[in-house]
């Protein structure tokens, strides 16, 4: 059984009289330790798919099973609890809380989990060390560079040891050198710590770094030039 099983995922919304379908019955399996990049043109639905997997957007239909839990059926409160325990989210614009220090920003997800302050402190230190920012722990976001802010964002995403890390254009707001540093960090998190990654990018160079590269075209998910299909014959019959 895959870590993440997406079956028949469809997302539709109205724009005036037009019905737009960014995700059209998408199927996908992501295994434990996979590093997957998702590319596509602007408006192709890649962020929509990512947000659905991250549990911050609801699909119109279909199922997303993560370790046996269909997250599309969870209530808002339960889904929030699930995100706290299972999702590490890396934003394009870092989205750090400006009034909190780097340390406090990284600690935020841990405040939602049953954990002693000593354990929180230990985990934040490890996360800071992983992103080489121990010396910037008590700096506020305004006192950090763009690259440092993104590293704090990455530390925040890994600190709770989530099931899967999702990133929405995590290098989209960075210059070339900083982008390379961040991608190196992301690759090490996958290869050395075995973290499961799903990154959305429009940059082909970034996309090429991942062992698994997916593309969204007209609502369909393409891998190695063919539509991804993981549905068993039995399920096809059920759907029919």
């Amino acid at each position: 059984m895959a870590l993440v099983e997406i079956r028949g995922l469809t997302k539709q919304f109205r724009k005036g009289d037009e019905v737009i379908t960014p995700l059209d019955s998408v199927d996908l399996d992501i295994e434990q330790g996979d590093f997957v990049t998702l590319m596509g043109a602007s408006g192709s639905g890649k962020s929509t798919l990512l947000n659905a997997v991250a549990g911050i957007d609801r699909p119109t239909s279909g199922a997303i099973n993560v370790q046996g839990t269909d997250i599309t059926k969870l209530s808002r409160g339960k889904l929030a609890d699930w995100r706290a325990a299972n999702i590490g989210y890396i934003f394009q614009m870092h989205n750090l809380v400006p009034v909190l220090t780097a340390y406090e920003n990284i600690e935020l997800p841990l405040l939602l989990l049953p954990m002693s302050s000593a354990e929180r402190h230990k985990r934040v230190q490890i996360a800071l060390e992983a992103v080489s920012l121990l010396d910037r722990a008590h700096h506020y976001p305004r006192q950090l560079s763009g690259g440092q802010e993104q590293r704090v964002g990455i530390a925040r995403s890994i600190v709770a040891n989530p099931t899967i890390i999702v990133g929405d254009e995590p290098t989209g707001d960075l210059d070339g050198t900083t982008t390379e540093q961040i991608l190196d960090l992301v690759q090490r998190l996958n290869s050395e710590l075995g973290m499961t990654m799903l990154l959305v990018t429009h940059d082909a160079k970034v996309g090429a770094l991942a062992p698994r590269q997916l593309r969204l075209e007209r609502g369909k998910l393409i891998e190695k030039g063919r539509e991804v299909s993981v549905v068993s014959p039995t399920m096809h019959e059920q759907r029919a």
Partner: peptide, 11 residues
Amino acid sequence: AVLQTLGVRPF
């Protein structure tokens, strides 16, 4: 919205 993404419940 960021807080909710991190797992803070709406309530």
